[in-house]
Nucleic acid binder design. Structure first.
Length: 552
RNA sequence: GCUCCCGUGGUGAAACGGAUAUCACAUCAGUCUUCGGAACUGACGUUCCAGGUUCGAAUCCUGGCGGGAGCACCA
C-alpha cells in the first residue's frame, strides 16, 4: 500500500508540474488523522507556485479513486490524509491470523549477517553491561531475521589477558576452588585490588600473564583450564535463561596470535614507539593506540584485527555487526582505521553498534544481598519479585513463569529506549511489573490467548468481518509490519518496543470497553481480531527476545 | 586541553523537518472486576539559553551553559 500511494501521489504531482519528488508518507501520530498521511503539498508549494491547501486540492483531484482507500482528506495546513477501506484492513487481520511470519519483510533477503554481542569475560562477573549487549544484540539479530537476512550469532570472550592473570593470582592466594564459578569473581576482585596497591603482587600478576600466554607453567595451566571451563559453563546457563543460542564462539586466546601476526606482517602500517608497536590514528583524524605492548603481547586492538580475520574465515558474511558499550566507540574507530590498511577486503563489512551505559540512581547500587549489582544478581532479584507476584497465577510452572517475567522486565527496560543513550538504572523501577513494562506486554498477550481459548470452549466461530474492520485497534494492527521494517532499517529495537506498548495499550482499552463473547454474530469478528492481536504480540515479543507465556 | 555523545513535565523516556509535543511512573480523583484487575477512565504537569536556516524546528546550523564518555602499553 505505501508504494502504491507514493506512486499515485508522484503522478498527481506531475500534473501540477512538480517532477522528481521524493514523496513523504507516514503514519500520522493520531489515528483520527488517517492511516497514511503525506506532507508533499507543504514541501513542494514553492515549485508548484500555489498555496499548500490549493496544491493539496489539485493533488487530491488528480488522484481520483485508489483501490483499498475509503477516503482522502485535506487537513491542517495542507496534509493529505488517507483512510483505508474496511476490506483492506480486514486483509491485515486475516494475514496476522494465518501467517506464521506475520510482520516479516524481505528487505535483507539473501544477506548474510553476523552479529557479535554479549562478550563477557571468563573469570569475571557477568555484569549489567553484558546484559545490555545481550538484550540489544539478540533483538537486532531477530529484527534482521524478520527482514529476511540469514543471521549467525557470535560471542567473543576474553579468556586471556591481564584480567585472567589477576583472577588466577587471586585463586592461588585465597586457595579457592577454580571449578566454582562463584569463587572466581571474588578471586578476580582480590587480584585486581592487589595489582593496584601492592608492587610485589603486580609483578607476580604480570609474570602469570606472560605464562598464560606461553603456557609454560603446569600449575597455572591447571588453574586456568579449570577456571575457564567453570566460567563458560556458568555463562551458558545465563544465555539459556536469556533466550540466546550462539552459532560461533570466538576467544581472545585464538585471536591474540593472529593479531600479533597481522601487526608484524605490516610494518608499514604500524610504528614502534617507546618499545611498543602503535597505530598512528592521527593520519585519519583519530588518536594513537597501542597494538602490541613493549613486552611483546598483543592488546585488545591487535586481537580485534585477528578476530575480524577469524570471523571472515569462519563464515563468508556480507556484514558483521559488533554490539558494544558506547565508551568503546572511539577505540573502535581506530581499530577500523588500522583494519582498512591491514585487511582492506574485510574492513568495509565491519559495523559497530554502540549502546549507552547502565548508570545507577544514587544510593541504589546494591542488590538484595547487599553486594554490587551484577547482571546475574539482577536476574535473581527480579525472579524473586516475580514469584511473589505470580504465586496465584494460572501458569502451570510458577518457577518458569517467574523467570520469564524477570527476563521480560529487564529486557524491556533496556529495549525501550534508543540504544545510544545511557540508561539510568533504578532498581525499583526495573522491579516494577506494571504499566510501561515487559510484563505488561506479556499480560496483554496472555489475555488475548485466554479469550481465544474461551471462544473455542464455547464453540464461537472465528471469522474476519470484512465490512466492519475499521476500528482503531485494527488500524493499529495494520501498522505492525511497517513498525518492524522501520525498527529493522535503523537497527533500533526500541522503535518496535514503542509500537508494541501502544498497541497493547490499545488492546487493553478496547478489551475494557467491548464485551467480546456476547453471543451475537459480531462475536465471530471480534474473536478473529483478538486472535490477530495475539499473533502480533507474540511475534513482536519474539523479536524483542522476550518470552510470551500463554498463561501467567 | 582536544575529540565524540547527550540536555524534553517531579522522575524515566518517545517523536524518520510537519498537525493541539506522545507515553509511562509518581501524585490526586474514579472503575469493583460476568471473556483474566500484572487491567481500565479522568485530572495535574514539559522541549537548557541566545541567535540563524525554513511555509514550518524538540529535531538542522552557529555560539554559550550543563552532564557523560574517550584521549599509550586495560578490556
Amino acid at each position: 500500500m505505501p508504494e502504491t500511494l507514493k506512486k499515485a501521489i508522484s503522478e498527481a504531482l506531475a500534473r501540477a508540474s512538480v517532477y522528481g519528488v521524493n514523496v513523504s508518507l507516514e503514519h500520522p501520530a493520531e489515528l483520527k488523522n488517517g492511516d497514511y498521511s503525506s506532507g508533499v503539498a507543504l514541501q513542494y508549494t514553492k515549485q508548484a507556485g500555489v498555496a499548500p491547501k490549493m496544491l493539496a486540492e489539485k493533488i487530491v483531484a488528480a488522484l481520483g479513486d485508489i483501490k483499498g482507500i475509503a477516503k482522502i482528506e485535506i487537513a491542517g495546513p495542507g496534509f493529505i490524509n488517507f483512510y483505508l477501506a474496511s476490506a483492506a484492513l480486514a486483509e491485515a487481520v486475516e494475514e496476522a491470523r494465518t501467517e506464521d511470519m506475520w510482520g516479516a519483510n524481505k528487505n535483507l533477503a539473501r544477506k548474510k549477517i553476523m552479529v557479535e554481542y554479549t562478550d563477557p569475560n571468563p573469570f569475571k562477573e557477568f555484569h549489567i553491561g553484558h546484559l545490555m549487549s545481550n538484550a540489544i544484540g539478540e533483538s537486532i539479530s531477530r529484527l534482521l531475521q524478520f527482514s529476511g537476512a540469514e543471521v549467525r550469532r557470535a560471542n567473543y570472550q576474553g579468556d586471556i589477558g591481564p584480567h585472567v592473570a589477576k583472577a588466577i593470582w587471586g585463586v592461588m592466594k585465597l586457595g579457592v576452588d577454580p571449578n566454582d564459578a562463584a569463587q572466581l569473581g571474588k578471586a578476580y576482585a582480590t587480584g585486581a585490588q592487589a595489582y593496584e596497591n601492592d608492587i610485589a603482587a603486580k609483578a607476580e600478576v604480570d609474570a602469570i600473564n606472560t605464562k598464560v600466554y606461553d603456557k609454560s607453567d603446569a600449575e597455572i595451566n591447571a588453574v586456568y583450564a579449570a577456571g575457564r571451563k567453570a566460567s563458560l559453563d556458568h555463562f551458558e546457563e545465563l544465555y539459556k535463561m536469556l533466550g540466546t543460542k550462539f552459532d560461533h564462539y570466538f576467544f581472545e586466546s585464538e585471536t591474540a596470535p593472529r593479531g600479533l601476526k597481522l601487526v608484524e606482517k605490516n610494518p608499514g602500517v604500524f610504528e614502534k614507539s617507546d618499545g611498543a608497536i602503535v597505530y598512528k590514528g592521527e593520519k585519519k583524524e583519530l588518536h594513537t593506540r597501542v597494538f602490541v605492548t613493549s613486552k611483546g603481547l598483543p592488546t585488545y586492538e591487535a586481537k580485534d584485527l585477528g578476530l575480524a580475520e577469524l570471523k571472515a574465515e569462519t563464515w563468508g558474511f556480507d556484514t558483521s555487526i559488533t554490539v558494544t558499550a558506547h565508551e568503546q566507540a572511539d577505540y573502535f574507530a581506530v581499530v577500523k582505521a588500522a583494519m582498512e590498511d591491514v585487511l582492506p577486503d574485510i574492513a568495509p563489512k565491519i559495523q559497530h553498534v554502540s549502546h549507552g551505559m547502565m548508570r545507577f540512581a544514587e544510593g541504589k547500587m546494591s542488590s538484595r544481598t547487599g553486594n554490587v549489582i551484577t547482571g546475574e544478581s539482577l536476574l535473581v532479584d527480579l525472579t524473586e519479585a516475580a514469584k511473589v507476584r505470580g504465586a496465584e497465577s494460572r501458569a502451570e510452572d510458577h518457577e518458569v513463569l517467574a523467570q520469564q517475567v524477570a527476563v521480560a522486565a529487564i529486557k524491556y527496560q533496556i529495549l525501550k529506549q534508543a540504544s545510544g543513550k545511557d540508561i539510568i538504572f533504578d532498581r525499583d523501577r526495573a522491579l516494577s511489573l506494571e504499566g510501561d513494562s515487559g510484563p505488561y506486554l506479556q499480560y496483554a498477550h496472555a489475555r488475548a490467548c485466554a479469550v481465544v481459548e474461551q471462544a473455542n470452549l464455547r464453540g464461537v466461530a472465528s471469522k474476519v468481518g470484512s465490512n466492519r474492520a475499521s476500528d482503531d485497534l485494527t488500524r493499529f494492527l495494520h501498522r505492525f509490519p511497517e513498525a518492524v521494517e522501520y525498527a529493522s532499517s535503523h537497527n533500533e529495537p526500541h522503535l518496535l518496543t514503542n509500537y508494541l506498548l501502544e498497541f497493547a495499550s490499545a488492546f487493553n482499552s478496547w478489551y475494557a470497553q467491548v464485551h467480546i463473547l456476547d453471543g451475537t454474530p459480531e462475536a465471530a469478528h471480534r474473536v478473529a481480531l483478538v486472535d490477530a492481536v495475539r499473533k502480533t504480540l507474540k511475534n513482536g515479543l519474539w523479536i524483542l527476545g522476550i518470552p510470551a507465556p500463554e498463561r501467567m
